[in-house]
Design a protein around this nucleic acid. Structure first.
Lengths: 347, 347
DNA sequence: GTTAGCACTCACAAGCGAAGAGTGCTAACA
DNA sequence: TGTTAGCACTCTTCGCTTGTGAGTGCTAAC
């Protein structure tokens, strides 16, 4: 059977109606509200065909039709027009995004807020991955004679630190030497390279002072590196889920929140997704918990490299055109914001 | 009318039963399961009295009794025995709390986790307030000739930093001078004192170099101070709410989550509460959203000073004895953990 | 190929009755 | 005088039935 022009139109109408109302769509509704110039009976015949082809389902015999995941896939791939945001909308988003943002992580957090606000769905955003950043220097700051703050600064100005407790007192001079040596050994290496090196070995082979404190400082150094590599996952609009009829069942809502509270898992999944705007519909998701959700993710870049992700999670019945547009616009803006920062530096 | 011994016993039994089952308690249940040696009819008479006195209510004519907030208040103030944790329980909690914790904020986050796990309620914990910490030194770390990281270290080894962009390039020497001057001017002051000073004035009156960069550095300095003073609110066990019959209504659950997502508000409220273990029952809460919740907060101390808070939020029908015990044990342990740290330093 | 007509299906809400839990009152009892 | 058994009464809850309405599928006519 062929997907004729008219079948496509009817399918599109059903998707549009169902996305709006969350109610199964009947033939009369289509015939009346979407001027296709055919009677309900004809629509019914076409619907019957579409169902046979797997694009529609039937909650029960005498109810209207509901688009299947296959239908959404078709819609997203072929039928969905690009929904350009109006200049006014773009303006509002850009303003909200950049308003009073001082740090880049801050910008990412804000992006999640804006995204959830605009789409009325649950939004998430992953702070930039720092694997490619290079270690600029290491500093050891004395607090008292047995406590130091170990600080790592990357070439982009990211800072991470831990408090390290020493077994024996260390003079300021000793700490200076230690810090210099560490900087000498690690400056210029990317953070993930640094972590892969045999740090203890470096210490042992180096100045005597380093050997003396290796037990205290090496774990602190590793901890700091790991901390710096950690990406933050921001979420916003979790409570939007309650406005979605699909989640009016308390058990569904519970599952959703339980899933969303497993942040590490989500982070891992997100890092794994491909570049670009990815729409994953229902059962296309690997995770059982997501099998009646759709996830839209997008990547923001700096220097053409994949850096971070953002996106939304919602019912399969979502406004894919709107969501993808907003997500795309946001990633563009974030990438731009990063570029401005980077550009400045090399002026 | 007098609260006789028997009335108290019956009230206690009703509270115990209702806390366990969340169902209105009938006279037969009390007579059968809590050996008071009286018939249901007698219990009924007493219940009727207790209701008149305001300790019980009646969802409808033919249902069992439910304890009023006044009853819970009486229970918490007068009747509730202290529920000592068993050594085994204490051990488990202490282990979980201290396991793999490297930073103090980390300990607080963990405390919220442990608390929610043990009580099966929603737990929160506020990281230590840092108003009383003293600024130890300020550092300016060059990233490139127009970008520096401004870093503040407190006397307890807390570190906070921001990236500052300069209008004109600054040499490493200039930055060193600037940092030295700032340290000289602010070291020894508490963070809140530092924020209250007229920072711009300090700059203007000082070295020429400082005047030159004041526009860039002063806002960064303020931002960093504020950031350091910011307390973090950790929450855990939000999804526990779904297991509580009182929240099986989706609208109730929605309200709960919406309330809990307003973190600043909660933080402010928590900071405002008194020292010690505070139980706030239902309508005793100022906030309309909390009027059918109870909140138990406790304070952890260092050097006898109020430092931070933790607690749980749950239905008025909660195991107050258990919850207060756990909360108390946790704050003790946290205070102890802080002391160990502090002690070390002065060894 | 399209459409009107009609029987049929199914979810959903309203109405009803039976069951069960629990009370309040009264009268008898120790 | 306090306690208790007994009983009528109240109110919720649950299951059952029934009516309604939305929607389909099929057939026959256009």
């Amino acid at each position: 059977m062929d997907l004729t022009e008219r079948k496509l139109k009817i399918l599109q109408a059903i998707i549009a109606d169902f996305v709006r109302t969350a109610e199964p769509v009947g033939s009369r509704t289509i015939s009346r509200n979407y001027d296709l110039g055919v009677s309900p009976a004809t629509v019914r015949n076409e619907m019957s065909d579409l169902e046979e082809m797997g694009y529609l389902t039937h909650p029960h015999t005498s109810s209207g039709r509901v688009p299947s995941e296959k239908a959404y896939r078709l819609y997203v791939n072929e039928m969905m027009g690009k929904k350009e945001l109006t200049p006014a909308e773009k303006d509002v988003i850009a303003k909200k995004l950049l308003d009073n943002v001082s740090e880049l992580d801050n910008l990412i957090e804000r992006a999640a807020q804006v995204l959830s606000e605009i789409t009325s769905l649950t939004a998430f955003a992953l702070s930039p991955g720092k694997e490619q950043e290079r270690l600029k220097y290491v500093n050891l700051i004395p607090i008292d004679d047995r406590t130091v703050v170990l600080m790592i600064v990357s070439d982009t100005g990211e800072v991470s630190n831990t408090t390290v407790r020493l077994d024996r007192p260390a003079s300021d001079d000793t700490l200076r030497v230690l810090a210099k040596n560490m900087t000498y050994n690690y400056a210029g290496k990317t953070l993930s390279e640094a972590l892969k090196l045999d740090i203890i070995k470096t210490f042992r082979e180096d100045a005597e002072a380093m050997a003396m404190y290796q037990n205290n400082i090496v774990p602190g150094f590793i901890r700091t590196l790991e901390d710096m590599l950690n990406v933050n996952l921001y979420m916003d609009g979790l409570t939007n889920i309650f406005s979605i009829p699909e989640y009016s069942d308390i058990e569904k809502a519970r599952h959703f929140f339980e899933m969303m509270s497993r942040k590490e898992e989500i982070t891992r999944k997100l890092i794994g997704t491909d570049d670009g705007i990815i729409v994953t519909i229902g059962g296309e998701n690997q995770e059982a918990e997501l099998c009646d959700c759709s996830v839209v993710t997008a990547t923001y870049h700096v220097d053409g490299k994949m850096v971070g992700k953002l996106g939304v999670i919602g019912p399969t019945r979502m406004k894919y055109d709107e969501v993808t547009s907003v997500v795309e616009f946001l990633t563009d803006n974030i990438s731009k914001a990063f570029m401005i920062t980077e550009g400045d530096e090399n002026e």
